[in-house]
């Protein structure tokens, strides 16, 4: 008998929670394929290490972009392999709860549930990421008070106001930490004339990236390919340059938080001033982001205890109490 599963199918990472066991898988959402035969060569961390470093016949791809499935077939294969790795076979068909961005379309919803069913799930239900994040961040969403959660993922940023177990106001943008990496890549190309890869841009973001000035700032050496000569070259980037490079993306995220606050009923809005807003997701870990949101909204911002696992833990709680919480699933409310 298979144990039921909760899956946080993120643009950056995929986490799987098994009922009664906890988190059993946490890997990058990457798959490496043989371009000629279509054969899967690697998934997860192994495939992630191949990004930008593969010979012509291998392609390492992220099948999800902006929280949406860009390649249905590859996503289905990735989900099937993930389920196999956690022990799901043709004969053990578990119930699966999958976290998806709240802004996905009907077609995308169907694509995710179909992919999970074809990959071996008996039943696939969807839950909005901010709702799962609020449960996972241990916010008192069972009470009639305003709880605001800001989930910044790889491809989407979502803000939601939650009270009495339901979403009251919601705002989502298809912008996330991958857009921050892309902004760094294009800045370095434009201003320094060198091309850097996706992973190097991510390393720069982790090393010196910030949304607002912080204490202990340092510079970073970046190695790439000179666009004029084609030779390897090193340039030095300052934190101010990186802040300037990513400012548009950060502004887009903070504006969506402001829009969500504006949608909240006044009775709940006053709760945020006391209780604060909670930041979850990998993108939320960007230095100075909490301070920047705090400054632009005049509302305290707190970091969740487990920002990377909050979403899957929330979905995991839903799978533990499936019958009581099935009203929360996306199809149930329509």
């Amino acid at each position: 008998m298979a144990r039921d599963l909760a899956i946080d199918l993120g643009t950056a990472n995929t986490l799987v929670y098994m009922k009664g066991k906890g988190i059993v898988l946490n890997e990058p959402s990457v798959i490496a394929l043989n371009r000629q035969t279509g054969e899967v060569l690697a998934t997860g961390r192994e495939a992630w290490q191949m990004i930008g470093r593969t010979p012509g016949y291998i392609v390492a791809v992220r099948p999800l972009r902006g929280g949406a499935i860009t390649d249905f077939e590859i996503t289905e294969r990735m989900i099937r392999l993930l389920l196999q790795r956690v022990g799901v076979s043709r004969f053990t068909r578990p119930k699966v709860v999958i976290c998806v961005p709240s802004a996905i379309t009907e077609v995308e919803r169907r694509a995710v549930t179909d992919a999970a069913r074809r990959a071996g799930a008996q039943d696939a239900q969807l839950i909005e990421q901010p709702m799962a994040a609020a449960i996972g961040a241990d916010l008192p969403i069972d009470e009639p008070v305003g709880n605001m959660v800001i989930d910044i993922g790889g491809g989407t940023s979502e803000s939601a106001v939650i009270s009495l177990g339901g979403i009251v106001a919601l705002e989502a943008v298809r912008v996330g930490s991958f857009d921050i990496d892309a902004a760094i890549q294009s800045y370095v190309r434009r201003e320094h004339g060198i091309a850097i890869g996706e992973r190097t841009a991510e390393e720069v973001k982790l090393a010196i990236g910030s949304a607002s000035p912080t204490e202990d700032e340092s510079q970073a050496e970046v190695r790439g390919r000179d666009l004029m000569t084609g030779l390897p070259r090193t340039v030095v980037l300052t934190p101010e340059e990186v802040r300037f490079a990513i400012d548009d993306v950060v502004t887009s995220i903070t504006s969506s938080v402001v829009r969500c606050l504006a949608k909240a009923p006044p009775e709940l809005a006053q709760d945020f001033l006391v209780r604060g807003m909670y930041l979850v997701g990998g993108g939320g870990m960007l230095r100075g982001l909490a301070q920047r949101i705090e400054k632009e909204t005049n509302t305290p911002v707190r970091m969740s205890n487990m920002p990377l696992e909050a979403v899957v833990m929330g979905a995991g709680h839903c799978i533990e109490h499936y019958d009581a919480l099935k009203g929360m699933f996306m199809g149930a409310r329509r």
Partner: peptide, 22 residues
């Protein structure tokens, strides 16, 4: 009531303690 009870901190603690201990 079942829905709200399932979201209470006490019910959530069980799931979260499992992950924390892991």
């Amino acid at each position: 009531q079942r829905h709200i009870d399932a979201l209470s901190p006490e019910r959530r603690r069980e799931s979260f303690d499992r992950v924390r201990s892991q």
